[in-house]
Structures are given as C-alpha cells and as structure tokens.
Design a protein around this nucleic acid. Structure first.
Lengths: 128, 128, 128, 128
DNA sequence: GTGGTCTAGACCACG
DNA sequence: GTGGTCTAGACCACC
C-alpha cells in the first residue's frame, strides 16, 4: 500500500496519513472490505510513532471511511452517502485554483491539469 | 476591500486573511501599486486581534505579494514570476479533487465546477 | 434464544452478548434453571469468535447471573439479592438521560419513553 | 466548574471528561458563549495528563458542543440541531433500565428515579 | 497565554 | 495478534 509522509509538509503527520488513505480509496486502490495494515505495521513502515497512526485510523473511522474493530483491524467501508458539505469542498477547490491563477496559468492549462489529476486520482476507481 | 473571516473555519484566522487577499489579487480587485488598508483598520473591521493581521501581512510579504514599508503601509507588488513550487500547487489541487471524487461527483461535474470557480476567481487577471 | 450482535455498535462484542442475555433474563425470557446454549453454539450462530462468547459467559458468571459447571453448560441462577451498586446504576441512568436532554426532549417525552421501554424490557419479571 | 474523574471507572478518562462537560451543558451550568478552563488548568485540577484533556476537548469540538480556537480557548456553542441518532439513545436508555429491573426495582420506583435524575440533570437548564 | 502535535514507552482490552 | 488509552515531556502554531 503506497503511502508516504513528508516531514516538511505543513499538515500534521496523522492528517497526511488520513489524506493518503482517502486518496487510495478514491482511486480504487483500496476497496470495500479490505483490511488496512495494522497500526504498528504502518508506523514502522513510515518511521513514525504508533500513536500517530492510531490517531489517523481513529479519524478515518469517525469520518466513516473505515470500520475499526478492536481485536481485528480496520476494514474499508462502503462509500458513505454523505461527505463534507459542498461548501467546504468548494472552498478547498477555490483555494487551489487561486494558487494556480496566481502562478499565471490560464483557464485552458488549468482545466488540462484538472483532467490529468482526475485521471490519476479517480479515473479508474469507479468502473474497475 | 471585501474581506471576511469565519470563526468556524478550520484554517487559522491569519491564513484566511492571507487567502482572501490573494484571491482579491488573483481577481484583479487589488492591482499593483495599491496600498492595503492598515493593520489596525483591518483588525478593527474583522474584529480580530492586531497580531493576527500583522501575521497575515508578514506572510504576504514573505511570499512576495506585497511590499511592506515602515510607516507607509503595505503595497501590492507586481505579479511575481514565480510562486509556490508547482509540486505544492498540484498537491493542493489533488487534495481538493480527491474530496470531490469521494463525494461522488463525476469528471464532467467536476470540470464544470472548476470552470465556474475559475470565472469567479480569475475574472480579470487570469490570462496575463 | 433471540440474541444478536451489531458490528457497528461501539460496545465490544462480548459486552453486547452480556447485555443481551441480561435483557433476556430481565424480560423473563430466560428463567432460573434454564441452561444457556453452548459457547460453540452461540459463537456459530452469531458468527463471532469462540473466545468472545466465552468472555461473555465468564462475565455473567462473575456478576452472578449464571452458574457455569464444567462440562454441563451455563445455568441461569436465581435472581441475586444484590446487583451492581446503586451508584453505578444511577450513573448509567444519568448518562442516558443526559443524552436525551441534549437531544432536546422534554420531561414528559422522556418519561413516556421510559415507560415504553419498561414495558418492552420488564414485561414479565419486573415487579418480583 | 465541578468536574471529576474516577480512575476506577471503566470509561476512559477523556470520555469521563467529555460526559461530565456534556452533563454540565445539559444542566445549564455551562451556557453558550462561556469559555472552558484551559486544557492545562483542567489537567492540573484533575491530576491527569494534559493530552488526556486535549483529547476530550477535541471530541467535544467534533461533536459540536464547543468551538475550540487555537490561541483563545474552547467556547460553548449554541445547541446543535442534530445529536445522536435516536436509536443510539434508546439503546443507552434500555441498557440502563435493564440494570434497574434486574436490581428488582418496579416501574413506579424507576419512574420516580428518572424524574429525580431529570430534575438534577436537565430540570432548570431550559427555562433558567 | 492558548490549543495541537509528536515521541517514547507502558499497560489494557478485544478477538 | 489487533487497536485503545495514558503518561511524561518536548516543541510548534496561534492569538
């Protein structure tokens, strides 16, 4: 399971793990019913503390992406019907686009980049 | 200068101010040479602490968006040739898109939303 | 013996089994002298691990609800004169009521719900 | 602010703090807009680790009971429109009532106890 | 000053 | 084996 953390990133480590796993789910690389590697395993692989990964798994559970069961690991759940309120999502998108505009990219370039990222992120997830 | 902060937002206040001003610049609402309102003014208008706005202006200066001159306020600079490293921008875009994919939106809907936001964000200064 | 477990429930599986059997006893569905189905039987029916059911039976024994005899199963005991210390019971009740109050229910509605649940729970064995 | 933890209690410490504060809110002892004592303060008072209280505040924020702001503390929010699903609340109530029935209490005694607890918990909160 | 994150390491609860 | 909780203590981010 490809997952990395970047100690230079401004996001906290546990958040990077959460985001990374969400991305793997969005991509279809982690499907419903799959059991995530154990907290200890991931912590060892990434070279971070056990508690940090535990916090990430806890958040994924609270957000409804996985079902964590005490003695038996964390299992990816079926897609939730509900996610973040659309307003939140728009805010995030707008912030990202603002950065691209300020970097001098035009609409065509930006849309092309979006399409490219969509292929990387969600392209095959749905119909695979 | 339309600028607001949301105390419920997860981003820190100073970051909201930074993002808001960047957006105004991207939209062309704040052009090169314009002097931003004083730290005191903004702090009063938004009802936040002086230090918070000062931190925002400092970051804008560090990122090269404004020039702060002792005693004469903060002036919007010419667009910098270089902004955030492209890798950072892609990361931000990818994160935003991941959220949209997880919310169940398809490529068409997402591209449409991107176009819509681009019109809102980049109205004037986009194709420089 | 109607007994179910819910893998989504926040309580551990063994606790759900304990609570379920207590409820059956409270309702009079399991009377003194009755032998509970074997650990294997229950584990198979519910699709959970043997150890989980064994832990539940052990706790029921420790709390005095059943007598476990080597090789002959677990037998429901006469109602004990003393159960959990009253303080514990009040704590549990108070926690449950706090939730209902925070949900905005008024005293009348809550008392009505209590009466309703009492009819469901204590149908037969209530006023011993 | 009366708040205690019990090291013998089976609930984790942070959960006891969460429950305690919820109860104070339900009782009206903590009203909207009040700032909770600092994490360090509470940790010191209760004799537990700082992180334990931080976890409690975090959960209260996630459940929408308080707004935690980085440099300025945790403020009690207006009542949320939405709480736990009713099913969860009924489960909790049923479990509590089962205990009381097993202790030999009759319907009258139980209803009386409920009324008594309601006066202690939520009686004055609403109309005060 | 405030809360947030992380580590190291211990111990417990669950299956 | 699994995840959960707690501590001690450090350091960071925010206001």
């Amino acid at each position: 399971m490809y997952l990395t953390v970047d100690f230079e990133d401004r996001r906290p480590l546990y958040q990077q793990v959460v985001d990374g796993i969400k991305e793997l789910i969005a991509r279809g690389a982690l499907k419903e019913g799959v059991t995530l590697p154990s907290v200890r395993q991931v912590a060892g692989d990434l070279g971070v503390n056990l508690n940090t990964i535990a916090a990430a798994y806890r958040q994924l559970q609270e957000e409804g992406f996985v079902a964590v069961r005490h003695g038996s690991g964390a299992v990816v759940k079926a897609r939730r019907s509900e996610t973040l309120p659309e307003e939140e999502l728009r805010k995030g998108l707008r912030a990202a686009l603002t950065g691209l505009v300020l970097a001098g990219l035009g609409e065509r370039e930006i849309v092309a980049m979006v399409r490219q990222e969509l292929m990387a992120v969600g392209g095959k997830g749905g119909s695979r």
